[in-house]
């Protein structure tokens, strides 16, 4: 295992939005950590989740699957999972798979946050 293999996920609560920061290397071994983190948030009743990929160096197919697992549930509740701040290499993985068509992927964290608040204010 190289150093990259260390994966960390940290959670910040903003009003209405739960911000998840991913660090390091997300693959089949570390995907359960992310899965736990997201399901904890959802179990608490939150449904607006923003995932920041700023510190994420690598993502594998299993890591992508995690988002797919929750997106339907979250959207059914009227929330969303938005992704932001991806490094070009990470983005290309999402891009190839067609994620930009399914998820809201923005470059900027603030932009994503404002999108959340727009939705909320619409309501």
């Amino acid at each position: 295992m190289n150093q990259n293999s260390k994966f960390l996920v940290s959670n910040t609560s903003l009003d209405n939005v739960q911000l998840l920061h991913l660090h390091g290397y997300l693959d089949a071994h570390t995907a359960p950590d992310l899965e736990n983190a997201i399901s904890r948030i959802i179990n608490k009743g939150h449904s607006n989740i923003l995932v920041s990929f700023k510190e994420l160096d690598y993502i594998s197919s299993a890591g992508l699957g995690v988002f797919m697992a929750f997106i339907e549930d979250v959207r059914d509740k009227g929330g969303d999972i938005k992704l932001c701040n991806m490094k070009p290499k990470v983005f290309s993985v999402f891009d190839l798979l067609g994620f930009p068509l399914l998820f809201d992927i923005t470059e900027d964290e603030q932009l994503a946050l404002s999108k959340f608040s727009n939705i909320n204010s619409d309501k």
């Binding site: 797919m68 190839l96 798979l97 067609g98 994620f99 068509l101 399914l102």
Partner: peptide, 19 residues
């Protein structure tokens, strides 16, 4: 060459076919 397209099993037929 990278034609657009979403992975199989990710989304319903409407969105998949359209893209």
């Amino acid at each position: 060459i990278t034609p657009t397209g979403i992975g199989i099993g990710l989304t319903s037929s409407e969105i998949f076919d359209e893209n």
